[in-house]
């Protein structure tokens, strides 16, 4: 695929309650494998996807959170988290699995405007 576009994936849903977060991650990895310019956004309940210390043994659902740590191996390095969403959920950057760029709502809106394709799950 010759044409490179800016793809943004907007994650607004918490993990485990629904499958969206896991299947979204699968699309992100494939998109990166096709050498596209990938940005990953976590806002609203989506910030819970990035919470450290997920233990899913008791619910017998696969814990996919370690995959976020592997993202840079796929050249997915643009991870953005909305500050307002973290604040509203009592989370800080120390609670997150990986290093991210924390953005204000205005910065997030401006970043969205730069994209060619926006997918949300």
């Amino acid at each position: 695929m010759s044409d490179i576009k800016k793809f943004m994936f907007v994650n607004r849903k918490a993990p485990y309650g629904t499958i969206y977060a896991l299947e979204s991650l699968e699309v992100v990895l494939i998109t990166a494998a096709f050498d596209q310019d990938v940005s990953l956004v976590f806002m609203d309940d989506g910030v819970y996807q990035m919470k450290k210390g997920q233990q899913t043994k008791g619910i017998e659902i696969k814990n996919f959170s370690p995959a976020y740590r592997a993202l840079d191996g796929y050249d997915v390095e643009k991870l953005y988290v909305d500050k307002e969403s973290m604040d509203a959920r009592g989370l800080t950057e120390d609670d997150l699995l990986v290093d991210v760029t924390v953005l204000s709502r205005a910065e997030m809106g401006a970043l969205m405007d730069e994209q060619d394709v926006i997918l949300s799950f």
Binding site: V27, I30, F34, Q36, L119
Partner: peptide, 20 residues
């Protein structure tokens, strides 16, 4: 088919719209 077909939708189409 695979998820690559979704990526291709993004690269080849003028507009990609999601219903969910």
């Amino acid at each position: 088919s695979g998820l690559g077909q979704l990526v291709e939708c993004g690269t080849k189409c003028d507009r990609l719209i999601t219903f969910g």
